[in-house]
Nucleic acid binder design. Structure first.
Length: 556
RNA sequence: GCGCCUGUAGCUCAGUUGGAUAGAGCAACGGACUUCUAAUCCGUAGGUCGCAGGUUCGAAUCCUGCCAGGCGUACCA
């Protein structure tokens, strides 16, 4: 609808110029907005004010010229008016809203989809937690955001691939092996627990892994060379932890197209190749016994080390190679979802990517702010150092996957998020998940009842549709017509919370309608029209929840 | 010190890329179930958009400077 109004205004402006009512053919972009106040119409535009300078005319005079040249062949406008300093307000007649229902029903699961992406290849990389411990709540938020962004982009016509980068090389894996082996010694060689070093992983799962390894038949580690024993522990532990992560993500409804191993970049020589290539172009240079990347050439505040003076590469080195590999695989756009505590890493990564000849717009980092875990308003004590934290699995088990996912998506990722476990479990109005799901279930119930009563769901006639004139009905129709725009915007801005908020708004509009009007009435024509309306609402709720990875239940 | 993020109703947060009179939910108060699911709805009240300047027809939104909180500032990962 908004687009149609936009087209009308644009055509009016052209016509006005041709007929001499405007002085310049330089037209600004037509912005149509939805006023907050009902008196200002269903839509309005500030175009006349924006044009004032270019046309050298008073805004209200321009507005009059535009209105004078509007040609409303479809009957979309009940009234137009000039208001305030030069706004044009548009009032849409009820009948103009009704066609959206047919659009919803015929597009069905595809309603709201677009061709914005034009099949361009995009990669979304997210979670990518080190396989050194179970996923915590913060990873859960990243998983929900990454997965949902991927779903939205796919819905908007992008060719999307979801990837998890496994940091399976380097020191932290070695530390993991060492941690497990020390617990192993503690259990089977009688080492005192006090001797466990602080830089090792403290969680109880480390001891479990040691025991598991022993029970699996590796009773011989005390006899091995320590290095070998540590390596065995590391391999075993990382493997086990990674499959645990996989299972947890699956339980969370998150799947990946590819699990990419950091180690594989070293094994295939790609890290060395990347470094060699940049040395040749002078972007990597030696200083103080180390190799540095000239990220300052691309806006970073200082150059960064890629190979330390002890010969070991930094993470940055493999990340350069990894991102180069992504683009070589044909992705036009690469989206990384990181915890906000890594924001200091963005300029150097961006620099490396630009240095490789990619455009700035081809790389996007979504920085997800932290999650405060609460229980009934009180912070849940979490100490990573002591290894005591609530895992993502704990949360899924306690509050359920739907509630967890939805709540993670109720905030813009730029804001930190309070996640209250008690609230997430509550089946009340406080909990937005059920509020939205309830709409779907209620309509399913109406649908069942209609079938019992032998009411068909055939598309109503235009005459029947014309019966949908109650304010609550118009509100629903308006909300439904907004959906494609909301999806598109959320794809463009990579902001999943827009879908969440939309669904809450649509749900509110439906509940209000439901409380005031009966769908199944004595009047067959009206019943048919209303049924058609609420079934459309149900479809959009289902589509939206689907984008969020949340189920749409038939009953609750 | 420097950099990034945040600051909007008592609480938790939206705010259509600069629009008109500031928007929800929760909490408070008052109402609505013989009905297609009350996991719901209707109403009342609640504001110096952190502070101060600036840009312009117009600012919660853009610029500058402060204030407060979080995070980051490694040849760590």
């Amino acid at each position: 609808m908004k687009q149609k109004i936009q087209t009308l205004v644009l055509q009016a402006a052209r016509r006005a110029y041709e007929r001499g009512a405007l002085t310049s053919d330089q037209l600004p972009e037509v912005e149509i907005e939805e006023p907050k106040i009902a008196n200002h119409g269903d839509f309005s535009t500030n175009m006349a004010m924006v044009m004032a300078a270019g046309q050298k005319m008073a805004p209200r005079k321009i507005a009059a010229a535009l209105i004078g040249h509007l040609e409303d062949s479809e009957g979309l406008l009940a009234k137009t008016e000039i208001a305030g300093p030069g706004f044009i307000n548009f009032f849409i007649p009820p009948a103009a809203w009704q066609p959206v229902l047919k659009a919803v029903h015929s597009a069905d699961t595809r309603f709201g989809a677009s061709r914005r992406g034009r099949d361009r290849k995009v990669q979304v990389e997210f979670v990518s937690a080190n396989p050194t411990g179970p996923l915590h709540v913060g990873h859960g938020r990243g998983a929900a955001v990454g997965d949902t962004v991927a779903r939205i982009l796919a819905f908007c016509g992008y060719d999307v691939q979801k990837e998890y980068y496994i940091n399976d090389s380097g020191r932290q894996i070695n530390t993991l092996g060492r941690s497990v082996f020390l617990r192993y010694r503690e259990l089977y060689a009688g080492d005192p627990p006090e001797a466990f070093p602080e830089d090792c992983y403290q969680g109880a799962y480390v001891r479990d892994l040691a025991r598991e390894l022993h029970d699996a038949g590796r009773t011989d580690l005390l006899q091995c060379e320590p290095d070998e024993a540590v390596a065995t522990c590391a391999r075993y532990a990382a493997d086990r932890i990674l499959s645990g992560i996989r299972e947890d993500l699956e339980a969370f409804g998150v799947g990946f197209d590819r699990w990419f191993s950091e180690q594989s970049l070293y094994d295939s020589g790609k890290v060395a190749q990347a470094i060699a290539a940049f040395r040749e172009s002078g972007l990597i240079y030696p200083k103080d016994g180390a190799l540095w990347f000239k990220t300052t050439d691309y806006g970073d505040e200082k150059d960064r080390v890629v190979v330390r003076n002890n010969g070991l590469t930094t993470y940055f080195a493999s990340d350069i190679s990894y991102h180069e590999d992504k683009y070589r695989r044909g992705f036009e756009r690469v989206i990384d979802v990181w915890g906000a505590d890594h924001h200091g890493y963005v300029p150097r990564m961006t620099a490396a990517i630009e240095a490789s000849g990619r455009r700035r717009g081809q790389f996007h980092v979504i920085l997800v702010q932290l999650v405060n875990l609460l229980r009934a308003g009180q912070p849940v004590a979490m100490s990573t150092r002591a290894g005591e934290f609530v895992t993502l699995r704990d949360v899924i088990d306690e509050v359920g996957r739907d509630a967890a996912r939805f709540i993670f998506l109720t905030r813009h990722y730029d804001s930190s998020l309070d996640f209250d476990l008690e609230l997430a479990k509550q089946k009340t109005n406080d909990n937005p998940v059920y509020y939205v799901q309830y709409v779907h279930a209620r309509i399913a119930s109406i649908s069942r009842k209609a079938a019992e009563n032998g009411v068909g769901v055939a598309p109503p006639s235009d005459a029947a549709l014309a019966r949908l004139t109650a304010p609550e009905e118009i509100q629903l129709l308006k909300d439904l017509s907004r959906y494609p725009e909301v999806v598109d915007q959320s794809a463009q801005l990579l902001e999943p919370h827009r879908i969440t908020y939309y669904l809450m708004t649509l749900a509110a509009a439906f509940h209000a309608y439901y409380n005031r009007h009966r769908v199944l009435s004595e009047d067959p024509m009206l019943t048919q029209a209303r049924l058609y309306l609420v079934l459309a609402v149900q479809k959009v709720i289902r589509n939206g929840l689907n984008l969020l990875g949340v189920s749409a239940p038939e009953s609750m």
